[in-house]
Design a protein around this nucleic acid. Sequence first.
DNA 1: CCTCACTTGTTCAAGTTTCAAGGAGATGGC
DNA 2: GCCATCTCCTTGAAACTTGAACAAGTGAGG
Lengths: 172, 172
Amino acid sequence: MGHMNTAPEPAARHRWLTDEEQRIWRSYRHATTLLEDHLDRQLQRDAGMPHIYYGLLVGLAEAPRRRLRMTELAMQAKITRSRLSHAIARLEKNGWVRREDCPSDKRGQFAVLTDEGFEVLRRTAPGHVTAVRQALFERLSPEQQKALGEIMEIVAEGLQPEEAGADLPWLR
Amino acid sequence: MGHMNTAPEPAARHRWLTDEEQRIWRSYRHATTLLEDHLDRQLQRDAGMPHIYYGLLVGLAEAPRRRLRMTELAMQAKITRSRLSHAIARLEKNGWVRREDCPSDKRGQFAVLTDEGFEVLRRTAPGHVTAVRQALFERLSPEQQKALGEIMEIVAEGLQPEEAGADLPWLR
DNA sequence: CCTCACTTGTTCAAGTTTCAAGGAGATGGC
DNA sequence: GCCATCTCCTTGAAACTTGAACAAGTGAGG
């Protein structure tokens, strides 16, 4: 919206990125794009699904009784309920997930990992881990790995959809 | 492919991630997902296009005569030609980009940033830079910024589609 | 009870991305 | 010149994502 020098926001907020910051930002964009594409293709090829769908199966596999309410799964995967609904429909068609009604809340649905889904995971997880290891961990020193973890934690913390904004409801 | 203990690859390659590595990997996934979603919504709201499309306009704005061959633009943005073709079609419909034939190669097309497209960029760039700054740079110490740049450069280097694999053609 | 506000999950339509296929032009050997 | 082959870019269909709208259910306060 605001775009001129005397806009509502202080001028300091409109300052450009320094050359160094631009360089860092470009590297970030470049690397994250390449890595996501790489893993997406790896999983599409080896497991027949995109990375995000794989993450859903992992989420279910780690949950008690291998099931999670739709909303919980959506939050854990950081996607909208709508997107999850479509995704589960597809995974259900594959036979890897099954829906179950929630007895205590008639609106609720559980997404349940089937044995077949678990099997897919068991079969493809090693290859996926290898891909992550080769692309990331094998290339970074222990110090860099530690730094990366800290940095990403800070960034994520600043963007939490709920926790951070919950006490400032008037902002949205 | 391989999935049992005595598979073609050495057992060492199948070792799981340590707890620490898993923590780092989760933070990475979490942060990059949130940041991309955040910027995508910011640009969809303020500029009426997804982040990647915005990046295409920036690429054109920085090019000599504000134009680039389709293939060059696709490489710079790290997307397929097909995807670019669809994207440019949409941006053309918005009046922000125009196609021009290449005189020296009749197969070739230039994507050219229109004045209107440049204007959109001029109007929305400050807000975008602010979003990046707030989400990333304002939260990291100078040392962390430096580390992030180095890490991302290393990761990107290992995933270059062409440069890196070109001398190992038998791998793909 | 009843009602109003909220939550849960789905659906629809529009937009985006992917993949395979293909038209058209360039290139290089013969 | 001619042919096979490669490159440039587009196309179409299927898969995936998004945001708004919605039906159904919950729950707190009267």
